[in-house]
């Protein structure tokens, strides 16, 4: 529970900065005030500015209106409850079970933080006593392989990389290596790609098929890495990658900035893929399991 608390604290600290900048301090806004039309409008503005999106914001605000609450404090609690309820279906723990090696594949658009998240995820798994092996599957971007290898060296995690070529082949190799070394978990990096690049979407489907060929049942987790700075396009990303790969989970990165990642509210409504982890800082242990209640708490204070 210690980790969860400090996570919430961190997240809250990050979001407190946001509120300063945004000049819409939700708790201040709601406390010691009578509920009137302008308060609902301010609430709506706060949710929109957190990237919750028009549809999700309107749904949340109108559900609160129906409660006909009178004082701000009650409204604040109701808002928190509504958000927590909306986000709760996204809560799921990553469990490494059964298969060995257990294969986790990461996907995402360019610059969403895949490689960094892999580092943090490997660290998190090591803390759970798992042996981890990384597959440098981003064979496209300049020095992506070097980035992962450098990280692996620093943290004593083996990285399987090939001088060039095919991401499927790298993963195939990595699975062989993992079996030979008895590694429990393989995490596969992939190149960043936009859903509009259909040939690259086809390529990543192939990587997934290769994993299944190399080992029945793999990949066991297919995670999409989302940047918390992303606006409503994050929802389109979830849909496109889910349609192409059948996502099992999401990782939301860069929550240590001023962005709130409210787009998960829209995701929860329209394509509820579980959110496994949130990245709340630059340090290696700043990847934390997602807790709906804490997230809701941090979002509205």
């Amino acid at each position: 529970m210690v980790a969860a608390l400090s996570w919430a604290a961190r997240l809250k600290a990050g979001l407190a900065r946001t509120r300063e900048v945004l000049n819409t301090p939700v708790p201040v806004l709601l406390a010691r005030r009578r509920v009137d039309e302008s308060l609902y409008e301010e609430l709506e503005a706060a949710l929109l500015q957190a990237d919750c999106g028009v549809a999700a914001t309107q749904a949340i605000v109108s559900s609160l209106r129906r409660k006909k609450l009178e004082d701000g404090e009650a409204l604040r609690r109701a808002l928190k409850d509504a958000l927590a309820e909306l986000l709760l279906p996204l809560e799921r723990k990553l469990e490494i079970t059964g298969a060995r090696p257990f294969v986790i594949m990461l996907a995402g658009v360019n610059g969403s933080g895949k490689t960094t998240s892999i580092g943090k995820l490997a660290h998190w798994l090591q803390l759970q006593g798992r042996s981890v092996l990384l597959a440098a599957g981003d064979t496209f971007r300049a020095a992506a392989r070097e980035q992962l290898v450098a990280w692996g060296e620093r943290n004593a995690v083996p990285v399987i990389a090939q001088p060039s070529g095919d991401p499927g082949a790298v993963l195939f190799d990595a699975l062989g290596a993992a079996r030979a070394r008895g590694a429990e978990v393989v995490i596969a990096d992939t190149a960043g790609r936009l859903p509009t690049q259909l040939h690259l979407m086809e390529e990543i489907r192939k990587v997934k098929r290769v994993a299944a060929k190399a080992q029945a049942g793999a990949p066991h987790e297919v995670l999409l890495v989302l940047d918390a700075n992303t606006g409503q396009n994050a929802l389109a990303q979830v849909k496109a990658f889910d349609d192409a790969l059948g996502l099992t989970g999401l990782v939301l990165t860069k929550l240590d900035g001023t962005a709130k990642g409210g787009v998960v509210c829209a995701i929860a409504r329209e394509r509820p893929v579980p959110l496994l982890f949130v990245g709340v800082g630059e340090d290696i242990d700043d990847l934390r399991p997602f807790v709906a209640r804490d997230f809701a708490e941090a979002l509205v204070g």
């Binding site: 957190a50 990237d51 658009v109 610059g111 940047d227 700075n229 606006g231 001023t258 962005a259 787009v263």
Partner: peptide, 14 residues
């Protein structure tokens, strides 16, 4: 990033 959301104003201002 063309995909950036609402927070863009805060970041740009800073």
């Amino acid at each position: 990033d063309a995909m950036q959301g609402q927070d863009a104003v805060n970041v740009a201002r800073a």
